[in-house]
Amino acid sequence: MADRDPEIIKQEIDQARDQLALTVDTLAERANPQRIADDVKSGLVRFVKKPAVAMSLAGIGALLLVLVVRKIRQ
């Protein structure tokens, strides 16, 4: 085994520690339940705002309204 300078070893350890801390911070941010919920919510809002989806939902709502009114009248 080659002799290595202790100062270089210390620098490598410090660099590895910093990289590990950055990785842990990144993983913690990605696994944050609030961030995940916000991402899902914004994705759903974008999906529902598409014209085809909005029209389909409006049609389903109108159909349900007609069915409920007919059920009440009977």
Rank of each mutant, 00 (worst) to 15 (best):
M1W: 13
M1H: 15
M1V: 09
A2W: 01
A2G: 04
A2E: 08
A2K: 03
R4D: 03
I8C: 07
I8A: 13
I8S: 04
I9C: 00
Q11W: 04
Q11E: 01
E12A: 02
E12Q: 11
E12S: 01
I13Y: 02
Q15A: 04
Q15R: 07
Q15I: 02
Q15N: 09
Q15G: 14
A16T: 04
A16S: 11
A16F: 09
R17P: 10
D18M: 07
D18H: 10
Q19V: 05
Q19S: 02
L20W: 11
L20S: 14
A21H: 03
A21C: 11
L22Y: 08
V24S: 14
V24H: 12
V24C: 05
L27R: 04
L27N: 13
A28E: 06
E29S: 00
E29K: 00
E29V: 00
R30C: 00
R30Y: 11
N32H: 00
P33C: 02
P33E: 02
Q34H: 03
Q34L: 08
Q34A: 14
I36W: 01
I36Y: 07
I36P: 01
A37M: 14
D39K: 00
V40P: 02
V40G: 02
K41L: 11
K41I: 15
K41H: 13
S42T: 03
G43A: 08
G43D: 04
L44M: 11
L44F: 05
V45W: 01
V45F: 13
V45K: 03
R46Q: 13
R46N: 09
R46D: 14
V48Q: 12
V48Y: 12
V48H: 06
K50Q: 14
K50W: 09
K50F: 11
K50S: 13
P51F: 13
A52L: 06
A52Y: 02
A52I: 09
V53T: 06
V53K: 07
V53M: 10
A54K: 08
A54L: 12
A54W: 05
M55L: 04
S56H: 13
S56A: 14
L57H: 01
A58W: 10
A58P: 06
A58S: 12
A58E: 13
A58L: 09
G59T: 07
I60D: 08
I60P: 03
I60C: 15
I60F: 10
G61A: 02
G61V: 12
A62E: 03
L63R: 15
L63M: 15
L63Q: 04
L64S: 06
L65N: 14
V66H: 14
V66D: 04
L67N: 06
L67Q: 12
L67S: 03
V69D: 07
V69Y: 07
R70P: 10
R70S: 05
R70K: 09
R70F: 10
K71H: 10
K71A: 05
I72W: 09
I72N: 11
I72R: 10
I72Q: 13
Q74N: 02
